[in-house]
Amino acid sequence: MGLKIVVLAKQVPDTRNVGKDAMKADGTVNRAALPAIFNPEDLNALEQALRLKDKYKGATISVLTMGPGRAADIIREGFYRGADQGYLLTDRAFAGSDTLATSYAISCAIKKIKDFDLIIAGRQAIDGDTAQVGPQVAEKLNLPQITYAEEVISVENEKIVVRRRLERGVETVESALPAVITVNATAPDCRPRNAKLVMKYKHAKTITERQSESEDYIDLTADRPYLNIEEWSVNDIETDINWLGLSGSPTKVKKIENVVFQAKEAKRLTPADEEIDELMKELIANHTIG
């Protein structure tokens, strides 16, 4: 039997391009106002999965994402690079989840997928930078975790060997399977889309996307079942509703502030030679430099 890999990926607002409508009054993120991208480290995770698929015959990759309907884009991006199956977990019941409620929902979806050997995710997402969902999913599923992975070296004889990048060094660890691996940005970048796969999967859609098409839309999934992106709501997975969304989130946002620097009056200079000369004389005189 081939190796079965689940990649956890998140669609994130591109926090490098934030406008002033980015936050809602309740302190949560107004995702609609921002460009949405594939979380960068999740692409590093996908690449590790794809390398395993290249290396081990019969390996398959499922991409699991949680988010609004448009997060189906993430699954299509996964298909275009070599993923085989996609699951979109989407429901208003998940809104307002902190990392723990998110991890719980994801772990319930993974229990439904059931048959897997390896879960690979990015170390952290750029909208929160918490690095918590990977380890928390592992805990919820009672699986070992290997964080800060840079390379999955091998998956053989029911063991996985991974090289990790730590602050001051490198560690090689071995774990029993199944296991959860989180991948660093220092791992190799993800390969680009494959043109043939783009052709094959560009009409891959969730049921909601198919239903919202115009009347002359022809549903191809009967002939080509691979074009179906599985869409799961809270009713499709087994959960305790108290552990989801805001009620399942122990952390609350008390306050959000835009940053106002204390106005310190900076001395304004231009690059003119005499001004730089004067500045250097000043810094040397007061022993800041020299």
Binding site: K252, V253, K254
Partner: peptide, 15 residues
């Protein structure tokens, strides 16, 4: 700081 450093958030765990 949160959200790529564009805001500062105060988080609490009340319960």
């Amino acid at each position: 700081p949160a959200f790529g450093g564009n805001i500062v958030a105060t988080i609490i765990n009340p319960d």
